[in-house]
């Protein structure tokens, strides 16, 4: 049997944009994934306060959601985003690492449904949440 965790990790590491953002896959399970991104001044959206741009958080949530889909036992292979909705709760605290957790909570032959959350050091108050639908490829 193919080691999906290893495959997903290699896939993330092979993504040029994930490398540009400095993303690291910190956990991969059976339908869930965790990714972290160290603070980087190049990704700031509010230069007066040094807050990371929401777009960079979106990119993390999208990558993390895709990894969660690929790691699902019923997912035969790749995936692509159909739609993704992001809700921004608050600004991420400048200087802190941002972490995202995604869970593929339902999967059919054609569609995978995912929820994801982004945090900084304060886990009680999420920075952003996402929910999306993804394609199920390679079946």
């Amino acid at each position: 049997m193919v080691d999906k965790a290893k495959l997903a990790r290699q896939f993330i590491e092979a993504i040029p944009h994930a490398r540009a953002l400095g993303l690291e896959l910190t956990h991969i399970g059976e339908g869930d994934a965790e990714i972290s991104m160290p603070y980087n001044k190049d990704l700031v959206g509010d230069p007066r306060r040094g807050v990371i741009h929401g777009g960079a958080v979106s990119a993390m949530l999208d990558t993390c959601s895709g990894a969660a889909v690929m790691s699902h036992p019923q997912a035969p292979g790749g995936t692509a985003t159909i739609d993704l909705r992001i809700d921004y709760m608050r600004a991420a605290t400048p200087g802190q690492t941002i972490r995202t957790r995604a869970t593929c909570y339902h999967i059919t032959r054609n569609v995978a449904f995912v929820r994801a959350t982004a945090y900084d050091d304060d886990e009680e108050r999420p920075v952003a949440t996402a929910s999306g639908a993804f394609t199920v490829e390679g079946g």
Binding site: G54, G55, T63
Partner: peptide
């Protein structure tokens, strides 16, 4: 192109 880049481009 990365889906996150597309999302960020639209949002920006």
């Amino acid at each position: 192109i990365h889906g996150g880049v597309t999302a960020a481009f639209l949002e920006v």
